[in-house]
């Protein structure tokens, strides 16, 4: 990593400028994914080791702000800040719940929504929650609705020189969340779900090449057909066997957990 150039902009506009003009540059926030990849050399930025663009300390990317009926979370706000935010606890409890399942204290102190989005892992713990809330991803140049953000396995709608600056959540939606992992902390999910009834949203991670909206299940839910939604979700997902779980398990658990979350909604 000695050959990776370290760039530390002082302002967002400087960061945007540097990102546009530095070939092979990778944005760096808390480093929980990028530092692992750079050290293990599973990522080798070009040319000549490339560069990292440190966004961690940019004030413009931090904090949780109320903008009318929107809650805006800075792209580089760590999960600890999200969990501790009174606004998040009050309005977005599912986001706080998801953040609490990420890694443990060390990771929560460094991991960010911007990083989770840009990394676009199908197993990203917050991503189903973002889908269920219909968030808007704000970048240096535009707003991207979350349902158009994930375009393929670890691929996003971001342009090569586009930086995520914030995530905007609508207030007033009831979202339920559950992650099934191998252990109680420090686990990547086998299945992760976020569900809302009004509007009907069923968002699932680790069951396809992207974090997924289960549109068939949502259509059934829209019509008040809970049993139909649970049956239909099996056709929405495309799980695989991998190191963490099996397709069969993910299929069964997606249905079981969806049933559990919907039952909980019904019980109020």
């Amino acid at each position: 990593m000695r050959d990776v150039t370290y760039l530390r902009p002082r302002t967002l506009s400087e960061a945007v400028q540097l990102y546009r003009t530095t070939p092979g540059c990778r944005p760096l926030a808390g480093g929980t994914d990028l530092m692992v990849m750079l050290h293990a050399r599973t990522l080798r930025p070009e040319p000549r080791g490339g560069a990292v663009l440190d966004l961690w300390s940019l004030a413009e990317l931090k904090g949780v702000r109320r903008l009318g009926d929107i809650l805006e979370v800075g792209a580089a706000e760590p999960y600890t800040g999200i969990i501790g935010s009174a606004e998040v606890q009050q309005h977005l409890p599912a986001l706080a719940a998801a953040a609490r399942t990420i890694g443990a204290a060390q990771i929560q102190n460094r991991g960010t929504l911007g990083g989770n989005l840009a990394n676009a892992s199908p197993a990203g713990d917050t991503l189903p929650v973002l889908l269920a809330y219909d968030v808007v991803v704000v970048t240096d140049r535009r707003s991207i609705p979350i349902d158009r953000f994930f375009t393929g396995y670890r691929k996003t709608a971001l342009e090569s020189d586009e930086l995520i600056t914030a995530v905007r959540f609508p207030i007033g939606r009831q979202v339920a969340f559950r992650k099934v992992g191998t252990r109680a902390a420090q686990a990547i999910s086998k299945v992760v779900l976020a569900v809302s009834l009004t509007p009907a949203r069923v968002a699932i991670g680790s069951v396809a090449e992207v974090p997924l909206r289960a549109h068939r299940a949502e259509a059934a839910l829209e019509g008040g057909d809970v049993a139909g939604a649970i049956a239909a979700v099996a056709d929405d997902i495309r799980p695989i066997d991998d190191v963490r779980s099996t397709a069969a398990y993910r299929r069964a658990v997606t249905q079981n957990v969806l049933r559990g979350l919907l039952d909980a909604f019904a019980r109020g």
Binding site: R8, G31, T32, M35, V36, H39, V52, S57, A104, Q106
Partner: peptide
């Protein structure tokens, strides 16, 4: 481990516990 899983490299930065294997020194 060098991948933020074990916590053996934990240090405090401004009072917050972090894995020092995941922090770029410039940060």
């Amino acid at each position: 481990c060098g991948e933020g899983e074990c916590g053996a490299c934990s240090v405090l930065i401004d009072g917050e516990v972090v894995n020092s294997c995941l922090v770029a020194a410039g940060q």
